[in-house]
């Protein structure tokens, strides 16, 4: 049985071409990348695709990794950039963010893959997917991934003040979006009896 390696040893082994070490790396960072990607894109096959792409890009860019940030931050940055590209691509394909809040929620509530999640997770997803990406990004990094405001600012290459104001505005908007659902008490069990 293999013992768990620290990041430095893992990276060294991956650079030496050890595929098992890369698999171990994926297993170690899957939950972090999943939280970021699913937070940004919502659950579903597109999110998994971006998750896979994140690790593949990381693998290919590893020789250029200088260790200026932690490996986790580096992977998150790749994931966030891929998510933002995907959101831009989606935006070109179809406009999800229509002006009416109810329509936005409907659009997300009927996305495949949201049926079997627990209530709070569904509620979070509903709200997040209706948020403008610039607010969604800071909320995902700061409140879901648990990065500090400074780390969030560094990942997004934004001033800390901007991160703080987007965070506040994002939370306010999220509250507004979720308000009708809070009021109903059984907000998302629309398909129930």
């Amino acid at each position: 049985m293999r013992t768990k390696l620290d990041d430095t040893s893992l990276i060294r082994k991956i650079l030496d071409g050890d595929k098992h070490a890369f698999k171990e790396f994926i297993e170690k960072y899957e939950s972090q990348v999943a939280a970021t990607v699913i937070g940004m894109l919502g659950p579903g096959p597109e999110a998994e695709d971006i998750g896979q792409e994140t690790f593949i890009r990381f693998y290919r860019a590893l020789s250029r990794f200088r260790g200026e940030s932690s490996v986790g931050t580096y992977v998150t940055r790749i994931a966030i950039n891929l998510c933002l590209n995907e959101i831009r691509r989606r935006g070109r394909r179809r406009t999800l963010y229509v002006s009416n809040g109810e329509e936005r929620l409907e659009a997300v509530a009927h996305k495949p893959g949201t049926e079997h999640q627990d209530e709070s997770s569904r509620l979070v997803n509903l709200g997040l997917q209706s948020l403008d990406p610039k607010f969604r990004t800071v909320i995902v990094l700061r409140l879901i991934d648990g990065y500090t405001t400074r780390e969030t600012a560094r990942i997004l290459k934004l001033p800390e003040g901007t991160v703080l104001s987007r965070l506040a505005r994002g939370q306010q908007k999220l509250k507004e979006i979720l308000a009708p659902l809070y009021k109903d008490e059984q907000p998302i069990s629309r398909d129930g009896p």
């Binding site: 999943a34 999640q117 997770s121 879901i144």
Partner: peptide, 8 residues
């Protein structure tokens, strides 16, 4: 903070 799903 409990977040959306954290697994693929």
């Amino acid at each position: 903070s409990q977040g959306p799903a954290s697994s693929f």
